[in-house]
């Protein structure tokens, strides 16, 4: 355990920023790229998690535990969001018998 905590200080913080921004961009790409609603929900989870990772990295580098509590709250909100989002998806499948996001295009205007 001592080795792990000392090795952290050798990795520059910029690499965590790079990793998180890359993951967030991949999530954004998935939201724009796919038409399947369930994959869009998964990509939203991916974006949540990239933010969580960056908050944890900042917390570890600043030695401030408050950010880790924030990550905990983000996880709570993500769990609630997934429950509601998946029930909306179930209702959509039941009503229009498809999970194509383009069937909901009237929500745009």
């Amino acid at each position: 355990m001592k080795e792990i905590t000392s090795a952290i200080q050798l990795i520059p913080l910029e690499h965590y920023i790079l990793l998180s921004v890359a993951l967030f961009s991949i999530g954004l790409l998935g939201v724009l790229f796919r038409r399947n609603t369930i994959i869009i929900l998964m990509c939203i989870e991916l974006m949540f998690n990239s933010v969580n990772l960056l908050l944890t990295a900042f917390s570890a580098y600043h030695s401030d535990p408050a950010a880790q509590v924030f990550v905990f709250f983000i996880m709570i909100v993500a769990a609630a969001e997934v429950a509601v989002g998946l029930s909306i998806l179930v209702m959509m499948k039941r009503n229009v018998d498809s999970v194509d996001i383009n069937l909901l295009n009237r929500l745009k205007w």
Binding site: M1, I4, T5, A7, I8, N52, L53, T56, A57, S59, A60, Q68, V71, F72
Partner: peptide, 11 residues
């Protein structure tokens, strides 16, 4: 695994 590397064991 990243969280463990950052020593955020609870998370």
């Amino acid at each position: 695994g990243h969280y463990i590397l950052l020593n955020a064991q609870f998370l």
